[in-house]
Amino acid sequence: MKILTIDTSTSTCSAALSIDGRCAGEYLLEAERHPSERLLAAVDILLRDTGMELEELDGFGVALGPGSFTGVRIGVATVKGLALATGKPAVGFSSLAMLALNLPWSLLPVCTLFDARKKEVYGGLYRVTSAPEPVIVDRVAPPERFLEAIEGEAIFVGDGAIRYREAIESILGHRAFFAPAHCHQPRASAGALLAGELLRTGAAVPLPLLNPTYIRPSEAELARMCQKAV
């Protein structure tokens, strides 16, 4: 199965082309902004360098969030467009679950944290074998409140783990462990494993239902709620 997987949910933009579960190529760039032109150029590079045509793909995968509202929208819109153009199925998955796959077969639960700004984190806790199984479902909260829900030891990964390391160590002490530096970036090649399983089991959804998972309201939604409350 040939799958193109895209992730733009954080400051790391990545795209991966996998063939039968093996990564044939991956583009990864750390950038504060993810112009759609750059993402499409990355897709072109992957296809060209692997000698594959877009029409040869069997499906698409995309990280649905949580993460950057703009970034997630770009990734989802790009995959929807490619799926519509080719008539191939598309699936989505949690960005936090994808990050947990950077630490497969960990003996400890893997706590994935993205910096959600506003003194909050997007966080999830997973047991990771061949696939991540949620222990604490994805949520947004101040780091201190999220950490209070963790029982026992855990290994932390993600830019939120880096930013709030001091708070994590203060609250959990010797129960907190941290992933090596190279594990903190989300990778579309890890997401391809999730996408492959979803496509294999027929879990593709109609494109109108393939939408971002923001978890918390956007600024525009908050403004509308405030106006209604007045």
Rank of each mutant, 00 (worst) to 15 (best):
K80Q: 07
A42P: 00
A24H: 10
T50P: 04
A63W: 09
F69K: 12
L54E: 08
I45R: 15
M52F: 08
H34T: 13
L46S: 04
V79Y: 08
L29Q: 12
R33Y: 07
V76K: 00
P35C: 09
V43P: 02
V79F: 10
L39G: 02
D49T: 14
E32S: 05
G61T: 08
F60S: 04
T78F: 00
K80S: 01
H34G: 11
E30I: 11
T50E: 12
K88Y: 00
A85D: 03
G51V: 11
L29I: 13
S68P: 13
I45Q: 15
G92T: 12
I74Q: 03
R73P: 15
A41F: 08
A77W: 08
K80E: 02
T86F: 01
A85C: 01
L40Y: 05
K80M: 05
A85T: 05
G51Y: 04
T70V: 14
D58G: 04
K80V: 07
A63Q: 07
R48Y: 13
G61S: 12
A77N: 07
T50R: 14
G75V: 11
P89G: 06
L57R: 04
F69W: 14
L64A: 10
S36R: 09
E55Q: 11
T86Y: 03
T78E: 01
G65D: 14
V62N: 01
G61L: 08
T86C: 03
A42D: 06
V72I: 13
V62P: 02
Y27K: 10
C23M: 14
E26V: 12
E37Q: 10
L28Q: 12
G67A: 01
A31E: 13
P66Y: 06
G61A: 12
G65K: 04
R48E: 15
L40R: 11
R48D: 15
G25V: 07
A90F: 08
G61F: 06
V79N: 05
D44R: 08
L47Y: 07
H34F: 06
R73W: 15
C23S: 13
L84D: 03
D49N: 14
R38P: 00
L64V: 10
C23D: 13
T86D: 01
A63C: 09
E37V: 04
L47V: 03
D49A: 11
R22M: 13
I74E: 14
F60T: 06
G92I: 05
